[in-house]
Design a protein around this nucleic acid. Structure first.
Lengths: 314, 314
DNA sequence: ATACACTATAAGATATTATTATTTATAAGG
DNA sequence: CCTTATAAATAATAATATCTTATAGTGTAT
């Protein structure tokens, strides 16, 4: 930041060009050169150097004293700014898509807040597109979304895997089938999130892959309503187990694997590619991935192997 | 010598990347780039820039304040070194508190400038506290204040005595009393500078010493307004004769001595304790004290003994 | 909707700063 | 004296940093 001055101060302290060079991990000519350039800038000799010794001239003494203060102030400034930013505190605005925000995020966030009480997270829930847009516009520090986003201004970091399943009422004829064939689902009624939601994207892909073209689709804007509708036997849905952990534990909802089809996707964290991260942001990002691996990720079928995902005490 | 910092400061002052570029004879991208590199060095945003405005962030404000000082010190260092070889010249930044700056300093400064035309003094007027702070922060070479300052980083040099007097209109019943007793002042209305000013401090001390607790105090922020108000008979004030020499000469204001009470104080010159003095600084300090003794110091009552303090040709 | 006033970004040119290799000067030891 | 050791200066070159030119976004105002 002012290398010349730093070199000068070191020479003055060590009374040697060579020692100074060592100390600064530079070569001796680099030191000679910087001193020469300072001397020409101030238009005076700064050191009296007769081959055995290096001594400050009067001008050098002034520069040494003032320069020391300047370097101190650089250091002080850096510290002041670090105190301001590096201390992990202040606001952290998170945006999450529905599934992530409503089901995955809360326990993680609770733990995060316990760890870093000075950080005050604020969560906004929207669909993936909107979240991405708001991260880009700096309205959000971090976006947490279900679908892949490709935008040059956004940095995308996969934080967790997710697998969606065909979900149905425990009273449904297929409920205990576990694994079924595509054709078994041909005549079912489906209850899905609206188009545009990440979950619906996966469902649409599922229908495309399986060749199913269901005539009977109900669209609800709320996962909560969908779950309750499925529980009453109104139809089947395609959901992330994250969103119906409780229902799996209670046994009111079951999942099906469909022969040869898996509906995997990732959760991603989005940040602006070009912006700086606050300390709080980095802490959260570092916290997120391991934390999601701690929470036993509910990939398997409820009736086969579900473990209480957290201390939810059944 | 630290181009990045210089660019940053210019941007902060102009609140514009483009203006800063012009001012520094650079192109706008050069400015953008330096700001970006500073931002990455400090790992935080320094400006909040939306297309219409450029504003300092909290971190930016810190860097602006500290950085300004750093640049000042670079400049000062250069001057100090130049002083070694050259004769006294260049800038001399003086800060003075109100009474000193507005009434005492001007004639001294005029004479000083006549003696040393190559020195270019710059005067800033503020209250004593602020002046001391700016000397400490190296924003000022010399501070000239009315109150005693005790700070380890400051060197304090008494330059002159001052005695304040109760001041009143020539038409006031007590105007020709010369010496009065405390109780004569019990029911007067007072017109004083605001709290925090050095002059007001003395007034407050006066009330404490005399046991007067005036119910009727008007506060004005300007000594000029106070004088005119006192002239019209609105009330009494407590002022330094320095600030109403003309009115004493004209006979529109008179002073009173209060039995057993004197309001003496000193004017002090402040410099940084640890720093070098430029030649200009030393010359000014050496010039100041004898000069103030030359100007007949108006301690006595106007109607008794005032001499024209300078060639003001009555 | 278009122009305009700004800042951001990218790529290449220039300037600055560091390195390597070599030279000069002085002191110390034989 | 001559040799060797140590320290700084110098020159040529390599690596960085810093500018400029050209261009792209992005809001605001007309």
């Amino acid at each position: 930041m002012d290398q010349g001055l730093r070199i000068f101060i070191t020479v003055a302290k060590t009374r040697s060009f060579s020692r100074a060079a060592e100390e600064l991990h530079l070569t001796q000519p680099a030191v000679s050169q910087q001193i020469r350039s300072l001397e020409s800038r101030y238009d005076t000799r700064l050191f009296e150097r007769n081959n055995k010794s290096v001594e400050l001239t009067p001008a050098g003494k002034i520069l040494f004293r003032e320069g020391t203060e300047i370097l101190n102030q650089y250091a002080r400034t850096k510290r002041l700014i670090e105190d301001l930013t590096q201390s992990a505190n202040g606001p952290l605005s998170l945006g999450a898509s529905y599934t992530f925000g409503e089901y995955v995020l809360p326990p993680v966030l609770a733990k995060f807040c316990a760890h870093y009480p000075q950080i005050r997270p604020k969560v906004t829930i929207h669909n993936t597109q909107r979240i991405a847009e708001e991260v880009r516009r700096r309205m959000l520090d971090i976006g947490l979304v279900e679908g892949k986003i490709d935008h040059p201004e956004l940095e995308i970091l996969p934080v967790s895997e997710d697998e969606l399943f065909v979900t149905l009422s425990a009273n449904h004829p297929l409920a205990s089938a576990g694994k079924v064939h595509v054709k078994d689902l041909a005549d079912e009624r489906w209850i899905l999130r609206e188009n545009g939601s990440g979950t619906r994207d996966v469902a649409n892909q599922f229908f495309k892959d399986t060749g199913l073209s269901p005539k009977n689709i109900l669209e609800f804007g709320s996962t909560q309503v969908i779950k309750e509708s499925v529980e009453t036997g109104l139809g089947l849905s395609i959901l992330s187990p994250w969103s119906f952990r409780k229902e799996l534990l209670l046994g009111t909802l079951h999942t099906l694997s469909v022969q040869g089809i898996s509906m995997r996707r990732h959760f991603y964290a989005l940040t602006r590619a070009t912006s700086f991260h606050t300390k709080a942001m980095d802490l959260f990002l570092d916290f997120l991935t391991p934390e999601l691996h701690n929470h036993p990720f509910p990939t398997t079928h409820a009736h086969l192997s579900l473990e209480p995902p957290q201390n939810e005490g059944l």
